[in-house]
């Protein structure tokens, strides 16, 4: 097994960081969502993310999970996924917000301490995607929560997710 460990260490797979999404950074700044100096000092370049599936097909979850693999290595950017909304700065939402998940989503957001961001990831969460006409879905996340950042794609690939999340940090530098 030690050989296996060494092999992994000697042949690193991690790729260079993609650039932050400049447009998203500018939008976030324009929205005035950059934080005050005191908060910025507290959060630094570190953001804790609570992922929430509000009815997705799980395609988005697969790609969000991929952010943790050796190629993307999300945690090197100070971004990490946390289990409790109490520990989270960012709510990363996927899915067309089913009526059956709406309350759970709202309660998760309410459980998060301020300041907090909401990121809508994937075409369903942004504009309800193929499920726009569904009578059992609320629709896009911004019908329920204040959305700060949108990451498009069906599903967005890990690079797109990373660029979006890095713009959250960039907007606050």
């Amino acid at each position: 097994m030690s050989k296996l460990l060494w092999h992994g260490l000697l042949a690193p797979l991690t790729e260079p960081a993609p650039a932050a999404d400049e447009e998203a950074t500018a939008t976030l700044r324009a929205l005035g969502r950059e934080l005050g100096t005191a908060t910025r000092r507290r959060l630094g370049r570190s953001l804790a993310i609570r992922e929430l599936d509000a009815g997705s097909c799980n395609g988005c979850e697969l790609e969000i999970n991929a952010l943790g693999n050796a190629f993307y290595d999300l945690e090197r950017f100070g971004l990490r996924f946390v289990a409790s909304p109490r520990h989270a700065d960012v709510l990363l939402v996927t899915g067309p917000v089913t009526l059956n998940m709406r309350e759970a989503m709202e309660r998760t957001w309410l459980a998060m301490p301020a300041p907090k961001f909401v990121v809508a990831a994937g075409d369903c969460a942004i504009g309800c995607g193929l499920f726009a006409a569904s009578p059992v879905c609320v629709g896009a996340v911004d019908k329920v929560l204040p959305v700060d950042l949108r990451i498009a794609g069906c599903p967005p690939d890990p690079t797109a997710l990373l660029r979006g999340l890095l713009s959250l940090i960039a907007a606050n530098q």
């Binding site: 599936d53 009815g55 997705s56 899915g95 067309p96 089913t98 059956n100 998940m101 759970a104 193929l130 499920f131 006409a133 569904s134 009578p135 059992v136 879905c137």
Partner: peptide
């Protein structure tokens, strides 16, 4: 929880 009415659509 994730029922989207897919067959209906």
């Amino acid at each position: 929880y994730t029922h989207k009415g897919t067959a209906g659509l």
